[in-house]
């Protein structure tokens, strides 16, 4: 421990027992006083490697080797994006390859090997797996909430049990006092043998103890649903629905003319060759050249049989 020293002001643990060494993302150590001094404005550069650092990112050094600190830091950052789970992979082999890749990246970043290349790789990965990363992050968030809920529940349960216990204890105490008083009363006013009375009382006390059974704590509704604060995983209630919608094709009114071709026939029989083709923008709006073609043909044929 003695060799712990701030590289800037050379203070050691021996000379200043309250020395607190701090470490930032670059992995270089500074004592708390130096941090206060150097990063008065909130940000500045590391005296060792000149990397720009933020004051808020300084942490108390937990490991003796500052390189480990740096590694932990980097790992945390990398794992924020590389958050795939085993179930995201088809085989164990792929998952292991993936873990291996993470290790390589962390190792490279910690030891300043191919930093540019590695960062590029991370960026590439981020771009490719944007959705999955977001999903897993959300999942992680949900897991955390669930965990919190579980802890909360446990705490509540504990509290209830504690209350119950103290209540029981008090009751027992009161009972004992009552029994004692009853016994004394009995001894004072009864005319039987004192020994007999003592015996019968001891008997009843023993019997009662057997009868007593612990009433289970109520921690759930009668339906079996646990008492929780609005769990997110509550099943969606099934809503009673009417009869299913059934599609019935429209009745075609009397066209008063020959039957126009169907859309399929328009496409197959080459009608479209004589219509302006739709462009990309029109397609996006749902327009196709079959529509005006069909309409023109329908209009041409409708009413041809009209007789005055």
């Amino acid at each position: 421990m003695d060799d712990q020293a701030c590289p800037r002001c050379k203070t050691t643990k021996y000379r200043n027992p309250s020395l607190k060494l701090m470490v930032n993302v670059c992995g270089h150590v500074l004592c708390e006083n130096c941090v206060d001094l150097l990063f008065l404005k909130g940000s500045g550069s590391c005296p060792d490697c000149n990397i720009v650092l933020r004051r808020g990112n300084f942490r108390v050094q937990l490991f003796e080797d500052p390189m480990v600190e740096k590694e932990v830091d980097i790992r945390k950052r990398v794992l924020r994006d590389y958050n795939k789970k085993e179930e995201d992979f088809n085989s164990l082999r792929e998952y292991n390859d993936y873990l291996e890749e993470i290790e390589t990246i962390v190792y490279n970043l910690t030891n300043n090997i191919d930093i540019v290349e590695t960062n590029k790789r991370i960026e590439q990965y981020k771009k490719e797996n944007k959705e999955l990363i977001m999903k897993n992050k959300a999942k992680l968030g949900r897991k955390a909430i669930e965990l919190e809920e579980l802890l909360e529940k446990e705490k509540e349960y504990e509290e209830l049990r504690r209350q119950e216990l103290s209540r029981l204890e008090q009751e027992a105490k009161r009972k004992k006092i009552r029994e004692k008083e009853a016994l004394i009363d009995e001894l004072m006013f009864a005319e039987g043998n004192a020994k007999d009375i003592l015996n019968t009382f001891a008997q009843t006390v023993a019997n009662k103890k057997e009868e007593e059974e612990v009433v289970p704590m109520v921690t759930q509704f009668s339906t079996g649903v646990q008492f929780t604060r609005g769990s997110t995983n509550q099943p969606i209630p099934i809503i009673e629905e009417g009869p299913m919608y059934k599609y019935e094709p429209l009745a075609i009114p009397d066209r008063c003319g020959p039957d126009p071709p169907m859309i399929k026939e328009i496409i197959q029989n080459g009608f479209l060759k004589h219509v302006r083709a739709e462009n990309e923008t029109e397609k996006a709006g749902g327009y196709t050249s079959t529509l005006p073609c069909l309409r023109a043909l329908q209009d041409a044929l409708s009413g041809l049989y009209h007789a005055s």
């Binding site: 009608f271 309409r295 329908q298």
Partner: peptide
């Protein structure tokens, strides 16, 4: 109003095709 202009287009398309 149903004008004869669109039917004309329809006939031309039909004549070109059939």
């Amino acid at each position: 109003i149903h004008n004869p202009f669109r039917p004309v287009e329809g006939f031309l398309i039909d004549i070109k095709t059939r």
